[in-house]
Design a protein around this nucleic acid. Structure first.
Length: 353
DNA sequence: AACGCGGGGTA
DNA sequence: TACCCAGCGTT
């Protein structure tokens, strides 16, 4: 272990790191926390506009705690992994109701909040409080796995443990916030997955993977398995005013808490209408199918437009169902494919004028 | 089409 | 402890 590991990161960070990210302007625990949750599974360039909208709507933890869940999920629409938003909202409520509105200042306390694990807690402690705490996000894993040529996939307990030990050892007491940001920047901008720019890297001189010319062999790859394919139909019910019928999904499971078209593998539009509103639809139009992929399966979606005309006869259960007006979209959470289809409906609506 | 990304939940 | 679950953007 070289003594100058952290100093090399810090010198590089001062010269080449990112210093103008929105969450670096004011590093309060709340702002750092929201940014870290958004940055889980999501790259910086994607996160920036979401972060800015979120902060404009909820400048402080009390604003978030007081917001309706639909608004929180609305601002998360398109980011994915919606459990992050539900946990964020729940944690904000806990901070306000049980902790007097103050975030815990230590890793243990932070980890007691939903959605905060060891790495996210470390990021908040180091960046917001300036205290020594290690992180191990995907970027840092890649940098350390290459630097030490740690074999194996970090998803296994053994490799994960090894990387955490290395991360803890290198984390300095001084300038811990800059070190943390520097490691993430290094992984995100130089030590990238497929084409690392080793000539510019402050660690290249004694990087084990670089010495072997096998940078992209580390970290080891996740064992691949073929994903199952499932299919479903979306019934896009439209009333005479061009509004679409949506139903709120249960809080658990896929797209939890988001709004969706009536959906099912073998839904038949005519049968559905007869069963639900007692008459057949005015018109049915099958749209081109498309595939939406999750981490654990592919979903082949068949969208079917079902025209109900005036007085559709659907009874709304408050908070569970709504007519979505494409001209005045309500602030609700939508999964990406639903948002895309509603966008197309809005386009059609506009073209009719 | 494959890949990568932190954390929660469950057996 | 070892899986399974979750949704995008990038390559």
């Amino acid at each position: 272990m070289p003594q100058d590991f952290a100093p090399r990161i810090l010198t590089w960070f001062d010269q080449h790191g990112r210093h103008d990210l929105p969450w670096q302007r004011d590093t309060s625990p709340y702002r750092v926390w929201v940014s870290e949750i958004m940055l889980q599974q999501t790259q910086v360039t994607t996160v920036i506009p979401f972060y800015q909208r979120f902060m404009a709507a909820f400048p402080g933890v009390a604003d978030l705690a007081a917001a309706p869940q639909d608004q929180v999920l609305h601002l998360w629409t398109g980011l994915g992994y919606y459990a992050r938003a539900r946990n964020l909202h729940q944690a904000a409520r806990q901070v306000c109701e049980q902790l007097g509105g103050e975030f815990p200042a230590d890793v243990e306390g932070l980890m007691a909040l939903p959605g905060i694990g060891r790495s996210t807690a470390g990021a908040i402690v180091s960046i917001a409080h300036g205290e020594r705490a290690a992180i191990l996000d995907g970027n840092v894993k890649r940098v350390l796995a290459r630097y030490h040529a740690v074999p194996g996939w970090p998803g296994t307990t053994a490799v994960h443990k090894t990387l955490w030990e290395i991360a803890e050892r290198y984390t300095p007491a001084e300038r811990c916030a800059d070190y943390t940001q520097g490691m993430m920047d290094l992984g995100a901008t130089l030590c990238t997955r497929s084409s690392p720019q080793c000539p510019r890297c402050p660690l290249a001189a004694d990087c084990a993977a670089h010495a072997m010319g096998r940078e992209t062999d580390f970290p080891g790859k996740k064992p691949k398995k073929t994903l199952p394919v499932r299919r479903t139909r979306f019934l896009m019910l439209r009333d005479g005013d061009g509004r679409a019928w949506l139903e709120k999904r249960p809080p658990q499971g896929i797209w939890g808490g988001l709004w969706c078209f009536p959906e099912g593998e073998d839904l038949d539009p005519t049968h559905w209408c007869l069963d639900t509103i007692g008459r057949a639809p005015d018109a049915i139009e099958t749209w081109p199918g498309f595939r939406h992929s999750f981490s654990h399966y592919h979903l082949d979606i068949e969208p079917i437009l079902v025209e109900l005309g005036n007085s559709p006869g659907l009874v709304m259960e408050a908070n569970r169902q709504l007519w979505y007006n494409v001209r005045q979209p309500p602030a609700i959470g939508l999964a990406a494919p639903i948002a895309g289809l509603l966008q197309q409906l809005a386009h059609q609506d506009l073209a009719k004028e």
